[in-house]
Design a protein around this nucleic acid. Sequence first.
DNA 1: TATTAGCACTCTGTTTTATTGAGTGCTAAC
DNA 2: GTTAGCACTCAATAAAACAGAGTGCTAATA
Lengths: 343, 343
Amino acid sequence: MDLDARKLGILKAIIDEYIMSASPVGSRAISKHEEFNLSSATIRNEMADLEELGYLEQPHTSAGRVPSDKAYRLYVDQMMQKAALTDGEIKIIRAHMSAKLDEVESVMKQTAQALSAVTNYTAMVMPPMLASNRLRHIQLVPLREGRALVIIVTTAGFARDAVIRVPEDMRTGELERISHVLTERFYDCRMDQIGERIAREMSGEIFERRSFLCSVIEAIEKKMGPDSPNVQLSGATNMLHYPEYADMNKAKSFLAAVEGRSMLYEMLKRASKLEFTITIGNENPDEMFKDCSIVTATYQIGEEPLGSFGIIGPTRMNYGKVISVLEYMRRSLSEMLTNDLDE
Amino acid sequence: MDLDARKLGILKAIIDEYIMSASPVGSRAISKHEEFNLSSATIRNEMADLEELGYLEQPHTSAGRVPSDKAYRLYVDQMMQKAALTDGEIKIIRAHMSAKLDEVESVMKQTAQALSAVTNYTAMVMPPMLASNRLRHIQLVPLREGRALVIIVTTAGFARDAVIRVPEDMRTGELERISHVLTERFYDCRMDQIGERIAREMSGEIFERRSFLCSVIEAIEKKMGPDSPNVQLSGATNMLHYPEYADMNKAKSFLAAVEGRSMLYEMLKRASKLEFTITIGNENPDEMFKDCSIVTATYQIGEEPLGSFGIIGPTRMNYGKVISVLEYMRRSLSEMLTNDLDE
DNA sequence: TATTAGCACTCTGTTTTATTGAGTGCTAAC
DNA sequence: GTTAGCACTCAATAAAACAGAGTGCTAATA
């Protein structure tokens, strides 16, 4: 017994149906599909086979069948067709993205909102990882006594800042001078190589302000590292609309898991190595998301991947639509970051 | 019939009891309090009076009584005692606040988390409004052709950035020069007065780069204005633990209201004029929060109020504890921003 | 041999009905 | 002014009855 064309067709019909209705689908519902022209009894036999093969599951004896994770996997790999965006959906996205966005933070936020508004699932967006960016400018700004703000700007226009200590006897002019020296020396250096280069190039030389410089570099490195997990989240409550989360406890634990961004951050980081990922139910390493599916995409400036974003929904998710939305968003986000960040 | 001492005592007992139990309190429960030494029948009479006076309500005949908003108001104004923080609670706060916090963003986030962890309600923290800050530094950093990043630093060490357009023919040196001129000219000027001063002082002079300068100032002003509403939120799901939100729909609408930060932002902005505010149920202008109470406090650097934060919970909230927590937090946050933003 | 009609059976979800128990208001006695 | 006593109310829970969707199996059919 193997998966012939008919079984495949029936399985697809069941999955499509279940994605729509969220309730177990019975043989009669499928037998009504004209393309098959089979009685419910025949469908029942086929369904029994599909169950044996592991593609369907029965919540209890006299309910219809529900697709298994294995079935969804097959579905996204071979059967599903992408659903092009409707005009309405494009409009929604545009509405979010066309506002004057002059700050990375708000681009991330709007992206998340657009995604969740269009898909009705939960959206997450990871801020850009700056490791692959190149340094454009370093500026030290004196604050009250003993403190200064160090600001780093990358080629792509991202800025980070941190408060650092400054030796009491240092004058403003000197901070200005150091800013210049550092900018010049590390101009166009990859952010994740600054630490290394400092170790190499400065080891021989003698700097009056050695320890201070080290603390500056340290602060910079910290900011560039695993970019402080402020993942943008939007539409977490969308999940409450779905019958999968009608149970209070399930809803509670989902929301709690998602609220403490860290799991999402890990997921997105993992996913940022591939242009797209689809993770279905069990395939998810986090126990918490065993009955969710997660679809992600990466965004980039030019050729450099910068970060990733994605949506979380029930395994019974409208994969075709979601994938199209992410493809669209990936393009428009990358474009936006490359060209338009200011109008 | 008026509120004599006995009625007051009984009312307080009822409120305290209800805050603990969340279920309507009956006459028998109160009659057991030793301090009164009254039978349940007497209590019943008093309760009937209190109901007539508008301090108690009955969900239905044959249930106990529930305090009205009016009762809570009286409670917080006159009867409630503050509950000092326990060692455990202080430890929780310290754990959040003592991490290396070198960025305002993360201070806000940690504050929100500490608040929600300690109170078990929902916490919100508004980022600093920079209007009353003074300018410390302006820096223009050239990016790809035609774009630059403008960075503003205030005395208190807050930085903001925005991408702006630059005339194609402008050279790096010129941007550097303009940075210096602007910094010098507006050094120590209140952020919310820069626009005004520009209008006044520059109207006479002729600058080669007039329109460009205007766009720089415009970008600055926008950043300083109603500080882009990225209110930090934490513990929204805490509410789901309370029987008040056992109903899915209530939970859903609360979470949705809170997710779109904007209402919270408005609340916090309004509240930022007073050191503390307590808003109970109906007193809240937002329909959405008619059965919540909101307690807020402001934080500051030196004498200047910078922003506010607070917690949202059911009207049946542990006011005494919450107020103590906010007082504590107000001090430690203000201190932190004034002195320690770097270790 | 593959398909189908028919039928008994299973199991959930909903509605209906009883039952319990906490709490009240009122009256009459203290 | 206080209290014991009692009838009454009402929500919440449990138990019972019922409806309906769906299945698996068997025997007939093409």
